[in-house]
């Protein structure tokens, strides 16, 4: 049964993975991956020893940690709230609509948000009617990162909630009935039945998403940033792109490898933690 999967992973994943050696090479396309001369750690040196790198790394961690910290729980909360709805058509409609933003690329959304959050835009007009001074949503670093994180969560919340809705269906109705008979209210039922029911999925998704910690959402930033926030939104991806005008595959591969290694270590660590806390039950392996 494993055969189709094994063949697939071997051909389309492990085979091209040999290309990772490019990170240690002075890659020349005409000489091929194998034939190019070795460059030792030169590519990594170019990557790490630039004075802009520490800032890029810090920004990446800040933005990604915020995304992970808040973005991870948002779909769970949405799923729980949806679960509380009793009117079926309403539930379905909200569900459908919240997953809609996922289909818009950031090129489109970026333009819309620049319009909404500009100094004289609708967001600030609304605030003005409450007598609040204009907020520099786009031009102050902390505010801009807030906008990035919030709109990022907004975009993927409905999409992410789908898995939890699926998991909710796996919780046996009898448990709720028994709890109701024992006099447990909705809140208690949620805390003692629903949440524990979701925990396994949550742990798996959390472990997997920790691996993405060094990916801070390039597309979104690229389509929304401006000179005043260059410094606070310069992430590893934008930093690498800036250096890459000469199509330097070596440095690009080195950067990718760095991100992957960090991701892998984080996953292994989180998994070990999950295993220890749950006595070997909840980890991925």
């Amino acid at each position: 049964m494993l055969l189709p999967g094994a063949v697939y992973f071997l051909i389309f994943h492990f085979l091209p993975m040999g290309g990772l050696v490019v990170a240690f090479k002075d890659y020349r396309m005409t000489e091929g991956i194998v034939g190019s001369p070795w460059a030792g750690l030169d590519n990594f040196r170019d990557l790490f020893l630039n004075e802009q790198f520490p800032n890029a790394l810090r920004n990446t961690l800040v933005i990604a940690a915020l995304r992970l910290g808040l973005g991870f729980f948002a779909p769970i909360i949405l799923a729980l709230l949806l679960n509380e709805l009793r009117v079926r058509w309403f539930k379905r409609t909200v569900q459908t609509i919240t997953y809609l933003p996922f289909f818009f690329s950031w090129v489109i959304l970026g333009g819309i948000f620049l319009m909404l959050f500009s100094t004289t835009g609708p967001m600030n007009s609304i605030l003005a009617t409450f007598g609040i001074d204009p907020i520099p949503f786009l031009t102050s670093g902390p505010w801009f990162i807030t906008v990035l994180v919030v709109t990022g969560i907004w975009q993927s919340i409905g999409y992410g909630a789908v898995i939890y809705l699926a998991a909710l269906t796996g919780i046996e109705v009898q448990l709720y009935e028994a709890a109701a008979i024992d006099g447990a209210g909705r809140w208690k039922q949620t805390r003692h039945i629903t949440l524990p029911g979701l925990t396994p999925v949550m742990i798996v998704l959390f472990i997997l998403s920790v691996g993405q910690l060094l990916s801070a959402g390039f597309d979104q930033i690229y389509n929304m940033y401006n000179p005043l926030v260059f410094e606070s939104t310069d992430i590893i991806d934008t930093y690498v792109l800036r250096q890459l005008q000469g199509l330097d595959f070596g440095v690009a591969t080195a950067a990718g490898m760095f991100k992957s290694v960090v991701g892998l270590m984080l996953i292994i660590g989180t998994n070990a933690l999950a295993n220890r806390l749950s006595g070997g039950e909840q980890g991925l392996w």
Partner: peptide
């Protein structure tokens, strides 16, 4: 395997 597979001869 990759070393064998890479169709680099022409470009060399």
């Amino acid at each position: 395997y990759f070393a064998v597979m890479t169709p680099d001869r022409e470009s060399v």
